[in-house]
Design a protein around this nucleic acid. Sequence first.
DNA 1: CCATATCTGTAGTGAGCACTACAGATATGG
DNA 2: CCATATCTGTAGTGCTCACTACAGATATGG
Lengths: 199, 199
Amino acid sequence: MAMGRPREFDADAALDQAMEVFWRHGYEGATIAQLTEAMGINPPSLYAAFGNKEGLLKAALDRYTAKRAAWMEGVLSAPSARDVAERMLMGTADSQTDPDNPPGCLLVQGGLACGTGSENVPFELAARRALTEDQLRERFVRAKQEGDLKQTADAAALARYLSAVSAGMGVMASSGADREALRQVANVSVKVFEEQSTT
Amino acid sequence: MAMGRPREFDADAALDQAMEVFWRHGYEGATIAQLTEAMGINPPSLYAAFGNKEGLLKAALDRYTAKRAAWMEGVLSAPSARDVAERMLMGTADSQTDPDNPPGCLLVQGGLACGTGSENVPFELAARRALTEDQLRERFVRAKQEGDLKQTADAAALARYLSAVSAGMGVMASSGADREALRQVANVSVKVFEEQSTT
DNA sequence: CCATATCTGTAGTGAGCACTACAGATATGG
DNA sequence: CCATATCTGTAGTGCTCACTACAGATATGG
């Protein structure tokens, strides 16, 4: 019963471009004109595929987190809480200063505060940041069970701490901090875990 | 030779209101209509007094940092590097969750990424964040001279670390983290300084 | 009291925004 | 080959934005 004209652009490739625009300019700072130009399509194609600007952001965020999932698995698979923290923060330092991407982290750069009508966006970003924190907390609970983290350690507090440091590094990266500066922060931050470790 | 009609509103009180709007909605999210309503004035008065929206932001930032200067002096006057860090982070946790202010920190909430035409704003905020970091670094250099911080400690790295943690706490506060959560982060963060102290 | 300089309020202005109507193009199902 | 369903490109739409022209108000200096 007639399938209609097929889409001519690659949705994932277009999302990669949209992701970069949101990353660099934030949700409110990114305009549809910039997005469509980067994606190589016209507005009607964008709206047909993603609904509206916020729908496009969500799709781009999904792709962002999906890409990071593999990396995050590598982080969580480190043998100890201390090594989890080190991989997490060093990887964050490197990815936030990767010249292939805009500086910082999309989940921070995307928008902490938005104007009327976009109040949803900060929540959307925060929810995705919280997912990483949850994974870290569970990993630290396991570390206590496995004995490489002190029984007195607070898994939730340590996860929150790592989450805060990562976000803070994102803020610094977005304002021009270089890789070496972020690695310094990561090195200092990891010391907390050495003190909380049993080894 | 004729001084003209005097201003009818209190510029500082108006700036306090503008500050809050920028804080809550970010630079781009804040509209002139919201600002003028909060300030209790009309657009021509705003433009006569502050030039344009960016000029108003700078004036609000000046007032923000001026208000914090006294608090910052109290932080820096703590007797040791470790106590500086504790006062800094605990004070940050409290002020970022003070119900009298919007959550988070204006210097982070104001805008990390902006659209075309406002590229200056993120730099403006970053420059003011950097001032605090400079003060901390100098304080830690002094702490090394005074001997309460190890000679092997890196004053610049520690200052950067505190700056990153504060910014990260601001991100968390803006997405709803409560005071207790931020204090946990502060408590964990301070441990780094205990390890770097001579006592 | 007058001339002048500055502020205030009303009522816009052009520009840029997210979003879309519509017509033509291109595929599938029969 | 035809009917249909979906995509694409052009060319807008109404709306909101930062910003301002202008006229009336209110102070000072002489």
